[in-house]
């Protein structure tokens, strides 16, 4: 009994130290966002804000196009998610429900494409995008974000569709539904949890995306949050109280969304290696 207690104490201590180190940057961020500018730039820095204030959370929207950055991120992420769904649902249906020559090859290809490096795509895509006038446009970023999450979505959705018994759709088709109606009325509702998880994951990915947005936007008005924040850094007067504030606002909703879908995401990534 005593020994068990001691072991637990040790685990608590080790975990506490590891998690403290791991969460240190976010703690610093939160603390900084609650400080007045004069306190942000004092050396040595303080741990607890002397006069905690929320005014950064108001001022960051007044002094920077923060609302615009959030809006851009939102438009791009929503657009990419919808486009992705429009392409991945039919493809996933085909791989889960239909037999056709080359299916195994297609699934194999999906896995491999997932590994393509965005950088290599970018250096070829940049000229194409400028030729088609897609630089500095929502459409351009929506397209690349949708395509870069497409293979993973098809992969995940296909697995979810397979988990819905085909007999239900068959019964509906015998009762006079056509295939499309069977999909919309039976399959989609039953696969909804998986479908939602996949779409949320696409949204998160597009929201977090950096290098496409960095390359394909040059005007400040078109920047999403990630690149907008980055453009502050490296200037001679970085206002860290504002960057940390904006970061908190950009991180919290995404972390919460991520927590919702984390388990499904894992089984999607690990496939047969983990029975999620």
């Amino acid at each position: 009994m005593r020994k068990g207690l001691n072991l637990k104490m040790i685990i608590y201590i080790i975990l506490a130290v590891m998690l403290a180190i791991s969460l240190f940057p976010f703690l610093v961020t939160l603390i900084t966002s609650l400080k007045d500018v004069s306190e942000v730039y004092t050396s040595p820095p303080t741990w607890i804000p002397v006069k905690p204030t929320f005014k950064n959370y108001r001022e960051v929207f007044e002094r920077y196009p923060m609302a615009r950055y959030f809006l851009n991120s939102f438009i791009i992420a929503i657009g990419a998610t919808l486009l992705n769904a429009a392409f991945s649902i039919p493809a996933a249906y085909a791989t889960a429900r239909l037999r056709f020559r080359g299916k195994k090859f297609f699934m194999y290809l999906l896995l491999m494409v997932q590994m393509f490096s965005p950088i290599i795509i970018i250096i070829a895509l940049f000229r194409q995008m400028s030729i088609f006038g897609l630089l500095n446009s929502y459409l351009g970023l929506i397209l690349v974000n949708a395509v870069f999450t497409l293979t993973f979505s098809i992969w995940m959705l296909s697995a979810y569709f397979l988990n819905v018994p085909f007999e239900l759709e068959e019964a509906a088709m015998i009762d006079g539904c056509n295939r499309f109606q069977a999909i919309v009325k039976i399959l989609i509702p039953l696969a909804m949890p998986g479908l939602t998880a996949t779409m949320i994951y696409t949204f998160i990915n597009a929201w977090n995306e950096f290098v496409f947005a960095l390359t394909f936007t040059t005007t400040p008005e078109m920047r999403p949050l990630t690149v907008g924040l980055y453009s502050f850094v490296g200037r001679w007067s970085i206002q860290w109280q504002y960057i940390t504030t904006a970061s908190i606002l950009g991180i919290v909703p995404i972390v919460l969304l991520f927590m919702l879908v984390e388990k499904q995401l894992m089984s999607g990534l690990m496939g047969g290696a983990i029975k999620g």
């Binding site: 998690l19 791991s22 969460l23 240190f24 940057p25 976010f26 610093v28 961020t29 900084t32 929201w207 977090n208 950096f210 949050l225 990630t226 690149v227 924040l229 980055y230 850094v233 860290w240 960057i243 940390t244 970061s247 950009g250 991180i251 995404i254 972390v255 991520f258 927590m259 984390e262």
Partner: peptide
């Protein structure tokens, strides 16, 4: 839950924050 926060947070924003750290 606490453990997965660094994975869940947007990578570019975390990287920017480390500049401050």
């Amino acid at each position: 839950t606490l453990l997965i926060i660094p994975w869940a947070a947007p990578v570019p924003i975390s990287a920017i924050l480390f500049q401050w750290v």
